[in-house]
Design a binder for these strands. Structure first.
Length: 271
DNA sequence: ATGCGGACCTGTTAGC
DNA sequence: TGCTAACAGGTCCGCA
């Protein structure tokens, strides 16, 4: 499910309901996420107050009094705030009950998400340590992508989807960004000019920014912290539009499947 | 170090 | 109507 705009939308949605709130109880109904939910999750968190909620890549980081909770939504995860405790559904794996009475509920049908605890600096955690720059921050530049990509034969789409290159660009927004920049998704990253990276960086930023402004993309089941879908689906130019006319040149959008992930592009506009 | 395939899961849909 | 196969928003790990 979630790429950066969806995770950020989730963060913004739940923040007002979790910051400054004290955790009264944690209920783990199914600990079998991508990595087992820590046994001592409830023991560690009970009685602690959440100080901050921030994001690094697609990881949500909850700062507590003396530790940090890292949470990834994987492919199908969502976090919602519910006012009263109604019966948990089949995939509602974890509830965080606050002293004030409301609940933050994690639902994740495919269980690709994960929860981690650490008392060290979160950015030093194994899973965060090697992450590349944030696409919406100042560290991502065309110079950086250009120099990092030299001599690489990897397809540009795979290159920008690698979280060591840049975080937050998943399958939807990779296709969308490359369309916007006019770059063929299979072109070798090392054979793209500096000038073209100067188009790609703003394209990535704009696509993510616009998706964020619309609350993310809901293809099937993404919901924000209050249960609403995102509306960027209507603005997608190539993703999930196989055979439909390109908005610029009217050529039919093409889809290919190199490896596992479907890639969408315009055969005329992207070279 | 880079690059690729496989792995982890369940739900939905397309096709026979 | 029912069965099966393919596919879905992520990313880590292990191997060449």
């Amino acid at each position: 499910m979630p790429e950066l705009p969806e995770v950020e939308t989730t963060r913004k949605g739940i923040a007002p309901f979790v910051i400054g709130e004290k955790i009264k109880r944690v209920t783990v109904r199914d600990p079998r996420l991508r990595w087992p939910v820590p046994d001592d999750l409830e023991k560690i968190l009970t009685g602690k107050t959440i100080r901050k909620l921030w994001r690094r890549g697609k990881y949500l980081v909850f700062d507590l009094e003396d530790c940090h909770l890292l949470l990834h939504l994987g492919m199908s995860g969502s976090l919602r705030i519910i006012k009263t405790e109604y019966p948990a559904g089949k995939h509602d794996h974890v509830d965080f009950l606050f002293a004030a009475g409301h609940i933050m509920r994690l639902r994740d049908p495919r269980r690709f998400g994960s929860i981690h605890l650490t008392s060290d600096a979160p950015l030093q955690h194994t899973l965060l340590k090697h992450l590349g720059p944030e696409p919406l921050g100042n560290d991502l530049s065309s110079d950086y992508l250009y120099s990092r990509s030299r001599k690489r034969r990897q397809a540009i789409k795979d290159f920008i989807m690698d979280s060591r290159t840049v975080v937050g660009v998943g399958n939807i927004y990779a296709s969308e960004s490359l369309y916007k920049a006019g770059i063929h998704p299979l072109r070798a990253a090392g054979r793209i000019s500096r000038q073209r990276y100067e188009r790609l960086v703003p394209a990535i930023r704009e696509v993510l920014q616009e998706a964020l402004a619309k609350g993310g993309t809901t293809l099937r089941d993404f919901v924000n912290g209050t249960g609403e879908p995102g509306y960027f689906k209507h603005d997608l130019q190539v993703y999930d539009r196989t055979g439909l006319p390109c908005q610029r040149c009217k050529s039919p959008i093409r889809s290919i499947r190199p490896g596992q992930r479907t890639t969408y592009y315009c055969p005329h506009c992207q070279t």
